[in-house]
Design a protein around this nucleic acid. Structure first.
Length: 269
DNA sequence: CATCGGACCTGTTAGC
DNA sequence: TGCTAACAGGTCCGAT
């Protein structure tokens, strides 16, 4: 489900509810999601949450001894609920706050994660991540430099979290459409000028999607329980066979890197 | 090394 | 209507 805009929407939704709150308790209704919940998570209890940070598609709830590190995987979501509200199916974890509410982590497919990052350290999962696409250093030059010699497709390259973070299957397709680049192109053969267009497209689309509250295809809801509206503006994702919104040509479909890929054969070269 | 495929899960939908 | 197969927003890890 969540790519960068959905994770950022989630972060903004929970931030006002968790900042300055102390953690009263942790309810773990199972022992793991993608990985076992570490014992060190108990360090959060009694501590005050100081910062709600997003890095790539991870969320970090910082406290004095360390941070709870969350990943929403394909189907995870967070909600702010009254702590007494009975849990529903796949509500795996509650972080209970001192105001009678709780941050509730729901994840049907259980590809998500809840881990612990010791204060002053960087969790191994966060090491080796690429640039933030909305940060100051992300650029066409960066994409161009890292892509030299790469035989993979430009779409798979763009979704490599070691290159640039936060771009998943939806936004990769949309960005390549905006930049006019055929997703099947060999990454190492795309020109600097085209990577500059692509970097601009990634930045613009992600930033705009955040203002729309993300993309709700089936079940993404922000922590207030509201959907996102960016899907109304999707140009290619999920539209295979339908006419291109720009030129009317039927959109093509192929599988790249085991992911469904859609593009306009006329607008994207 | 870079690249590829399998694996981890459940829920929904398309197709027979 | 009911069953089955395919597919879904992610990414780690092992094999090649």
């Amino acid at each position: 489900m969540p790519e960068l805009p959905e994770v950022e929407t989630t972060r903004r939704g929970i931030e006002p509810h968790v900042i300055g709150r102390a953690v009263r308790g942790l309810i773990l209704r199972r022992a793991d999601l993608r990985w076992p919940f570490p014992q060190a998570l108990q360090n959060l209890i009694g501590e005050r949450i100081t910062v709600a940070e997003r890095r790539a598609k991870y969320l970090l709830l910082h406290s004095r001894p360390g941070a709870a590190l969350l990943h929403l995987g394909m189907s995870g979501s967070l909600r702010i609920v009254d702590a007494g509200l009975p849990p529903r199916l796949h509500d795996h974890v509650d972080i209970v706050l001192d105001d009678g509410r709780a941050l509730r982590f729901n994840d049907p497919r259980r590809f998500g994660a809840l881990l612990w990052q010791v204060a002053g350290e960087v969790h191994p999962l966060l090491q080796g991540l690429g640039l933030e696409p909305l940060g100051p250093d992300f650029s066409g030059e960066h994409l161009f430099a890292l892509s030299r010699g790469k035989r993979t497709t430009v779409k798979v390259f763009l979704m490599d979290q070691a290159v640039v973070v936060g771009v998943g299957n939806i936004y990769a397709a949309e960005s390549l459409f905006r930049a006019g680049i055929d997703p099947r192109r060999e990454a190492g053969k795309v020109s600097l000028a085209r990577y500059q267009r692509l970097a601009d497209a990634v930045r613009d689309i992600l930033a705009h999607a955040i203002t729309r509250g993300g993309t709700t295809l089936r079940d993404f809801l922000n922590p207030e329980g509201e959907p996102g509206y960016f899907e109304q503006e999707l140009q290619v994702y999920g539209r295979e066979g339908l006419p291109c919104r720009v030129c009317g040509t039927p959109l093509r479909h192929a599988t790249l890197g085991q992911r469904a890929t859609v593009w306009c054969p006329r607008c994207q070269r």
